[in-house]
Computed example of a mutant assay.
Amino acid sequence: MSLIKWTEEDGGRIRLGLPSDLDLPMAQPLLDSLRAAFKASADVTVQADAVERISAACIQALVVAARDAAERGAAFVLAAPSEVLSEACEDLGLAAWLKQWSRA
């Protein structure tokens, strides 16, 4: 069972709720969930306010999802990124990327 919550919303949008701990072993389940979400919908929101710990591999999965969404013309949003996620992105030089894809 994945710790990533999946919700189908009005208009076919998929919302993935991230758990508080996105350590290295969560990178593959996150990537799998993102791929499944984009197979089900061209409109995916990742709810990121609960993230208290995140690995670089999980950030990489989010970056790949955003890139793939842009290439396919799909909608991708990181909703309410936590302070931990924001700081990790800043540490990795991805502050501009986070700003582009996030919504408060």
Rank of each mutant, 00 (worst) to 15 (best):
E83R: 06
L92C: 07
A88W: 02
I14G: 05
L85I: 01
G17V: 06
E90M: 10
L30N: 04
A27P: 04
A40W: 06
A69V: 09
Q60M: 04
L18N: 08
Q60T: 11
A42S: 04
A57T: 05
P29M: 07
A37T: 11
Q60K: 07
K39R: 14
W97Y: 09
M26H: 06
A48H: 11
G73L: 14
V64L: 04
P19D: 03
V44E: 02
I54E: 00
E71L: 14
L78V: 15
S86C: 05
C89T: 06
E87T: 08
D21L: 13
A79N: 14
I59G: 01
S2R: 13
W6D: 12
L94T: 11
L30E: 04
V63A: 01
F38Q: 06
I14H: 11
A37N: 12
K39V: 05
L16T: 03
L16F: 04
L16E: 03
I14V: 14
A80L: 10
V63D: 01
P25N: 08
W101I: 06
L22D: 04
L22G: 05
D21N: 12
R35T: 10
A50N: 09
P29V: 08
L34R: 14
L3M: 09
L98P: 02
K39L: 09
W97L: 06
V51N: 05
P25A: 05
P29N: 10
Q28M: 03
A36C: 13
S55W: 14
L62N: 02
V64K: 01
V46T: 12
A80Q: 15
R72Y: 15
A37L: 14
D68W: 13
A50S: 10
E90W: 02
E71M: 12
L34C: 08
S102Q: 13
E8R: 00
D10M: 14
S86Y: 01
V64P: 00
V64N: 02
I54P: 00
F38C: 02
E71T: 14
T7K: 12
E83Y: 02
R103E: 13
A57F: 06
L30D: 03
A40D: 04
L31T: 08
E90H: 12
R15L: 13
R67N: 10
A27E: 09
A50R: 15
E90C: 11
L22N: 07
W97D: 05
L98H: 00
L31W: 11
R103M: 12
A70M: 08
I59R: 01
E9K: 14
E8Q: 05
